[in-house]
């Protein structure tokens, strides 16, 4: 019947209802992320050993009662380095995503709302950036200057601007077609009001979902860059760098590489679960269709 299609359209826009049961993914993911976050914040207090003190007599110790995760080639405690390194990973992920959101969202809003030439220029620019694989784009940016942690974060953030802008644009394009935008124009509302008071509040759900998934991509990309020697520099305890340095001893002391590897997987899985859980809650298009068909 005639009412069916608008009914479906409305579901895409409907705000999440309060009091609904939270999806399992979100609960599990948020728990993982919260635990890692707490450990990272408390790292200086709870780390059993100093993370950067070299101890020649304690090199390559396998996990034991004193060094729960063993020691590395300089005799440093792997667990302590891991805890401190968590801060770096989280910092990278969050900073890079914040940068991509802060730049990508305005670009996408402008492209989607003004359309025409502005859209064409912005999106062709994004196409060009997207046609270089992210890691190479990061490499290119980092090749210019001596490596440093914050530069890696900026580079990774830069790399993820085009996809953020694209997503924002497509959401904006869809929302700009809605009649409540026409209603706002019929009231003579300013462009700023329409963009930030009418469109943006409705665009948030997919952007938040995408942003949270981007955090995990950013962590991985930053780690890969560090792994290639273009991010954090020794003696930093960045996880990517730790894995990179541990490669030479992989046969004899695999725990040095495995510990940061598993830590990173856990963090990324946690962030991903949060992202998917948020999608389930915030983005009703993916929710199960309610059956009662006319």
């Amino acid at each position: 019947m005639a009412a069916a299609s608008p009914e479906q359209a409305s579901r895409a826009l409907r705000p999440a209802r309060a009091g609904r049961k939270l999806p399992l993914q979100l609960v599990v993911g948020a728990s993982i992320v919260c635990v890692i976050l707490a450990l990272a914040l408390l790292a200086p207090l709870i780390a059993p050993h100093p993370w950067d003190t070299i101890n020649v007599r304690a090199r390559f110790l396998a996990p034991n009662a004193t060094y729960w995760l063993g020691t590395d080639d300089y005799g440093r405690d792997v667990l302590s380095r891991l805890l401190v390194g968590a801060r770096l990973s989280i910092f990278m992920g969050v900073t890079a995503t914040a940068i991509s959101l802060a730049v990508g969202i305005p670009i996408g809003l402008a492209a989607g709302f003004f359309k025409g030439r502005i859209d064409e220029i912005l999106m062709r620019g994004a196409d060009v950036l997207l046609s270089v694989p992210p890691i190479l784009l990061g490499l290119l940016v980092l090749a210019v200057t001596p490596p440093a942690l914050w530069k890696t974060a900026v580079a990774v953030g830069f790399v993820y601007i085009p996809p953020m802008a694209r997503l924002t644009r497509s959401v904006t394009l869809a929302l700009a077609e809605e009649d409540f935008i026409q209603a706002a124009r019929a009231r003579g509302e300013s462009t700023a009001y329409i963009l930030f008071r009418e469109i943006l509040p409705n665009a948030w759900p997919p952007l938040i979902v995408e942003g949270s998934l981007r955090v995990s991509y950013a962590i991985l990309l930053a780690a890969a860059l560090s792994f290639l020697g273009l991010g954090a520099q020794p003696p930093s305890s960045d996880w990517g760098l730790m894995i990179s340095e541990a490669r030479s001893f992989i046969d004899n002391a695999p725990w040095i590489a495995l510990a940061p590897g598993f830590a990173m997987c856990l963090l990324v899985i946690g962030v991903n679960l949060v992202g998917d859980g948020l999608r389930e809650t915030l983005d009703p298009r993916l929710r199960h269709r309610v059956a009662g068909k006319g």
Binding site: S216, A257, M264, N272
Partner: peptide
């Protein structure tokens, strides 16, 4: 999604 390539490679080598 969660396991980066460089860690896969370490696991494969190991």
């Amino acid at each position: 999604i969660a396991v980066p390539e460089f860690f896969w490679s370490i696991v494969v080598i190991l």
